[in-house]
Design a protein around this nucleic acid. Structure first.
Ligand SMILES: Nc1ncnc2c1ncn2[C@H]1C[C@H](O)[C@@H](COP(=O)(O)OP(=O)(O)OP(=O)(O)O)O1
Ligand SMILES: Nc1ncnc2c1ncn2[C@H]1C[C@H](O)[C@@H](COP(=O)(O)OP(=O)(O)OP(=O)(O)O)O1
Ligand SMILES: [Mg+2]
Ligand SMILES: [Mg+2]
Ligand SMILES: [Mg+2]
Ligand SMILES: [Mg+2]
Lengths: 415, 415
DNA sequence: CTCCAAACG
DNA sequence: TACTCGTTTGGAG
DNA sequence: CATCATATC
DNA sequence: TACTGATATGATG
């Protein structure tokens, strides 16, 4: 008892065990996070998975430490520059000074060229797989339910989310959090069917809409607004009504002057809601300032595929690093400390895809240029094995080909 | 089969599993290191200990990566300085430039003040515990033998070392390496007894000799040499003969102008040998140049204890870091790249105890100032437990006191 | 080129 | 008892 | 101040 | 089946 007072960290070890699925999603605001984390920790502790997470975590902490020290060096070097940089002619500026000017200049430039003239809508279905399953089995309505198995769940309905249950959480942990939780096996045929129905609606408003997954799409409704003389808000309402009429499913929408912001907005009033970010500079800048960096993710274009790829966001690891190494949590801070980010993260000069640096650009411009994919792949997972001969058999090119063909075949017969 | 050609690293995983006890000691030159490492790996793989070692190793690799990148930065910043530093007045020099001048200056200064006038001898018993045990049981002679248990061995005789067996190696692994290996339980009473006998000999040559452990001591025989008109080499021979006469045990000796070098030298012709490093600058500088950094370790003085403490060396981890981050393996390189070391390792400015920076100083001067201990402690280990109440009972101050008293009592009754 | 980590839904 | 799968990008060796 | 990593024998 | 124990210092939070 006395011990718990003197060492609270050691007494509550679950506070430092973070996973993708302990992070809050829409519909998880009222959740007792501490309790969820404790149960997740207790169920996970000691497992292979857990050990591996700890190993990775240790690695990241080391990375953060080094960043902090490099950062401190930059800061201390800084003061001398303030005193002397007026007399500097060339070659003597440190990386920090160079980055500061470059970063400031780019921010000013980008903010100047920000395009506020377009109206983008991002539509995202609510608890998609779960909602579809509820349609086909109305008995599930109102009860906490997850799509997946005891090993892994793909999504959970909003009743389940009240317990802290969400996509990417192992089913047996979800079961611990809510013993009444109902499990439904996934059925992709249904999901593609309903996805197709939603897209029919989207096509009415933007024939060139960009589908980013089965359950979400980006629509440029600028022309629709001007032609019909309506607002983005009205169009969003229409679309959502149309989707509901076609499918019986609810969705949420975000309206904003670019895709990145529209995506963020669609999450704000989930489920069955929408949020409009006015297209004036003041509103946009204010909105971005308080935006948690974790919300940011980028749509990269992929003109020859059916789907557009959503990556380039700031996930669990990068959020952790930015927070603990630079004290950055919001997008305002990411812009303020632009010089540090520029100094510490490799901009790569060429490909600014998956880095906080690119996030800066995107926040400001949501660059509309078409970004062609740089690689293409097709892979299959097989269950883990220590049996070497079995392994080589699995890796045999012919076997690989067969399993890929098997999938293609399955898809074509399913649809 | 085809796989092993394309990925040799994955096929020989034992090559990357390093421990203190896979490192060579005296008497392990002809050992098939690859084979030993393979067996150690195979026996260890999958154990808790092994997993933990891998976790630590990952951490260190991250540290090295960051060092390399910081190092690269320093190097690139460097070129501009070469071009401009002539015109620099103040405040603009980067850390690398400052370190370079400081480091160079210090090396020159220290090398100038190097004291070559003294004659130090370091004496270290051969396979000490094992040799004592062989004295009391001559049947052991000539057979591979280790002092310790199936869990851990404290030392092994030179017959056993041919199999790769050494101190700090778990007994069950040693058994795998050499099934005929004989195990003898340690008996400290015997070791302190024989240690006392050796010290009686040491005292004849230097009444102020410094004992660094039961089996080794540093002697300043400068006066003895001048008074008797003999060389350090002769005195070392006398001492070794005296020790053998008193105890029946062999020892090895190193003769050099300072303690650090004498300690290195005593290891060179083990067992039952000695090595003399002449006290002229040329010989010393040449010797240091090719000296592997791992051999370096420092004697810190502790005037109020019975024993002097030997720490401050470059061990497994620091060796790894210096090698992989800076390409440093020998003491020559450590002096050449002094500026990098100065830039990357915290000199701490005040306490230059356990760092490569201090190693530099020591290589040059073996600073003779008395370094007072900064702390004192007395600890007891108890067996691991998950039982919390038992844990608190063990940690109870009164229990701790009792167990410490128990040890003191045991010591006094033993001697 | 290979292997691995990060990110997305 | 159980901790996904497929796709893409970039970094390190 | 507490914990951990490093090093020595 | 088994991977030490006593000591000191420095880094980190
Ligand atoms: N980590 C995941 N692994 C596998 N499938 C996933 C994962 N995350 C989401 N999915 C699937 C199931 C989801 O119903 C569908 C759409 O994802 P997403 O829009 O993020 O959540 P959702 O539609 O279930 O809930 P909501 O959008 O209301 O938060 O994609
Ligand atoms: N890692 C260890 N753990 C416990 N005791 C040790 C360890 N290393 C050494 N000892 C004990 C046993 C040794 O006989 C004694 C002296 O150590 P040391 O001089 O390094 O080796 P040694 O005397 O056995 O062989 P050498 O001939 O190499 O000197 O200290
Ligand atoms: Mg959704
Ligand atoms: Mg979605
Ligand atoms: Mg010895
Ligand atoms: Mg010794």
């Amino acid at each position: 008892m006395a011990k718990t007072e003197t060492s609270p960290d050691a007494a509550r070890p679950w506070q430092s065990y973070h996973t993708v699925y302990t992070n809050a999603k829409a519909g998880m605001d009222g959740v007792d996070k501490e309790k969820v984390q404790r149960i997740v920790y207790e169920v996970s502790k000691g497992s292979k998975f857990f050990e591996n997470e700890e190993r990775k975590e240790a690695f990241i902490r080391q990375k953060i430490e080094n960043m902090r020290s490099r950062c401190a060096k930059i800061t201390s070097a800084d003061s001398s520059h303030y005193r002397t940089h007026k007399t500097v002619k060339s070659g003597l500026s440190s990386s920090k000074y160079i980055c500061e000017t470059v970063a400031e200049k780019r921010i000013v430039e980008l903010e100047a060229t920000r395009d506020l003239s377009r109206v983008w809508i991002h539509v995202d279905m609510d608890a998609f797989y779960a909602a579809v399953e509820t349609l086909s089995n109305p008995l599930l309505e109102g009860k906490p339910m997850a799509v997946g198995s005891m090993s892994m769940i793909s999504t959970a309905n909003y009743e389940a989310r009240k317990f802290g249950i969400r996509a990417a959480m192992p089913g047996f942990i979800a079961h611990k959090l809510c013993p009444e939780l109902i499990f439904v096996r996934p059925d992709f045929k249904k999901y593609t069917h309903y996805s197709d129905l939603t897209r029919k609606v989207f096509r009415r408003y933007d024939p060139n809409f960009m589908a980013a997954s089965l359950d979400e799409a980006y629509l440029d409704v600028t022309e629709v607004c001007t032609e019909k003389g309506t607002s983005g808000e009205e169009v969003a309402k229409e679309i959502r009504a149309g989707v509901f009429e076609e499918t019986g499913l609810t969705c949420s929408a975000g309206v904003a002057p670019n895709r990145l912001l529209a995506k963020v907005c669609s999450d704000i009033n989930k489920p069955n809601g929408q949020f409009v970010l006015p297209n004036n500079r003041m509103a946009v800048v204010t909105f971005i300032s308080s935006l948690p960096i974790r919300k940011v993710n980028i749509l990269t274009e992929k003109p020859h595929g059916q789907l557009y790829l959503q990556i380039g966001g700031i996930g669990k690891v990068t959020e952790h690093i930015l927070r603990d190494a630079l004290g950055i949590s919001t997008c305002e801070e990411i812009l303020q400390k632009a010089s540090y980010i520029c100094a510490l993260f490799s901009h790569s000069t060429s490909g600014l895809e998956l880095s906080p640096v690119s996030a800066q650009d995107m926040l400001l411009t949501d660059t509309p240029e078409v970004r062609l994919r740089k690689s293409i792949s097709n892979e299959r997972t097989f269950s883990a094995t220590g049996d070497e001969t079995l392994l080589y058999r699995k890796l045999d090119p012919f076997e690989v080909l067969k399993s890929i063909q098997a999938r293609t075949l399955k898809k074509s017969t399913n649809s």
